[in-house]
Design a protein around this nucleic acid. Structure first.
Lengths: 108, 108
DNA sequence: GTAAGTACTTTCAAAAGTAAAGTAATGTAT
DNA sequence: ATACATTACTTTACTTTTGAAAGTACTTAC
């Protein structure tokens, strides 16, 4: 009984934690844009409609800190920065695709 | 070519729309709490740690407006209100469970 | 020397979220 | 009779997050 309650509580916390990482307005769209492969900052900015620079920077930083994307800087002029999904991030692909399918079927 | 671009754009829009419905900070936790079955307002309030009344009301209204939960009022004193997932809402169960599993495996 | 390109940063207003107290209706305890 | 409790919300005042727009640093091309 007590075990069950603790377990349930942990489960809900886990969900809250997950959402703090990828529950933001833009995170999933960014991850979605990274599924086909590595993208540069400006590419992401062009690929995701209506996102603003500040939010893209913030979400990428957050996701990098949480091991979902990796960041690679090239000392070119002008500078080049590449973002790639980590294995952890790639594992979200089927989930986000399912969510997307749900939307196509039920939204509108 | 043009078709593909339009399709991609629509796809990303769908994701944005989905998130405007269930991407809020609390929506998924509420849906998760409704998986086992119908719950009253005060039950949800107790089941979801740290949520505040105003947000629970807001999210439930939003989800009702989007056909994810149904609301049933009983003219008792004090009043009783029951919330239940619709079919549309129930279809999110496997997705949210997968997301949850992902969290258990990769978060922390 | 002016413009262009990249990857950000800064500033300030607007929107979303939080905390705490209040409301209406009535039934129970003192 | 008066105070208190219960339920499902509202209301108000406040803090945090997000958004829009402009700015920065660096170097190459014209």
């Amino acid at each position: 009984m007590i075990d069950k309650k603790i377990k349930k509580s942990n489960e809900r916390c886990a969900l809250q934690e997950i959402l703090s990482i990828i529950g933001g307005k833009w995170s999933m769209s960014i991850i979605y844009a990274l599924f086909p492969g590595t993208r540069r900052f400006s590419e992401l900015e062009r690929l995701i409609p209506n996102i603003n620079t500040r939010m893209l920077v913030k979400e990428l930083k957050n996701m990098e800190a949480n091991g979902i994307v990796s960041r690679k800087v090239f000392a070119t002029v002008p500078p080049t920065v590449e973002y790639t999904l980590t294995t952890k991030g790639e594992k979200l692909e089927p989930i986000i695709n399912e969510l997307h399918k749900w939307g196509l079927e039920y939204v509108n």
